[in-house]
Design a protein around this nucleic acid. Structure first.
Lengths: 117, 117
DNA sequence: TAAACATATGAACAACTGTTCATATATTAA
DNA sequence: TTAATATATGAACAGTTGTTCATATGTTTA
């Protein structure tokens, strides 16, 4: 990258103070990991299902018509980012949406998309 | 994928009606495109900057310390999904956050991440 | 008009991701 | 204990993405 010499709109002081309000890199990276997890049709569908009712892996598998492995990998991704949580119930592993942040996130995006169609 | 024969928790009727409430593929695909756009450190930082104040490309370029090309490509992605909008102002192209959905989306994610640290 | 500034875009390559396959582990029922 | 069910995980490959480089286009000023 080379430093451009002039841009009449740029005020270095302002730029600096604006950058200070941007969350630091660690936070940004964790945020992008979350969005990256939501960028998959399968994982999004999983969340829309769990939004209605907590479910075990084999229920999700039947609903989504993908392999058990794919569901399980998807759930792991979501779990690691604390977007979903787990509970053991006998031989079943029951997954559910972590909290209202996740619900709102999805709803905002859905509304945004539905607004223009 | 092979069809697993038994899963005591699965009730085919219920599964079916749950799937009916999952947005259809076109919507899901558009949602994942949005999340995919948010899954980039650079684009996220752009949004955090625009969240404070509308800015032109060269301001963003200075703030982020990446090439003008990278900023421009990033903005195009965000623009195509209507996450940011544009306005001409003389020789400057001024970008700004599209609407409150986008703001809320980012805020929910930030809160979620900050909650556990 | 020409020169300078501001932005956009195509190509290309390295890096990353999602799925499946194969297999391992865990739990329950017989 | 063994068989059946339920879930998890590593490897690997095809497909996708973000950045830079080079260049084109658009706008203003001199």
């Amino acid at each position: 990258m080379f430093m451009r010499k002039k841009c009449r709109r740029v005020n270095p002081e302002n730029i600096k103070s604006l950058m200070e309000k941007v969350p630091d890199s660690e936070i940004i990276t964790r945020m992008s990991a979350i969005f990256q997890a939501l960028q998959s049709d399968t994982r999004l569908k999983i969340l829309f299902l769990l939004k209605q009712k907590e479910m075990c892996v084999c229920e999700l598998e039947q609903a989504l018509e993908v392999t058990q492995s794919a569901v399980s990998h998807g759930l792991r991704t979501l779990r690691q980012l604390d977007l979903v949580r787990v509970r053991r119930e006998g031989k079943f592993t029951v997954y559910y949406i972590a909290d209202y942040h996740v619900r709102t996130l999805i709803e905002m995006c859905l509304e945004h998309v539905e607004e223009k169609s």
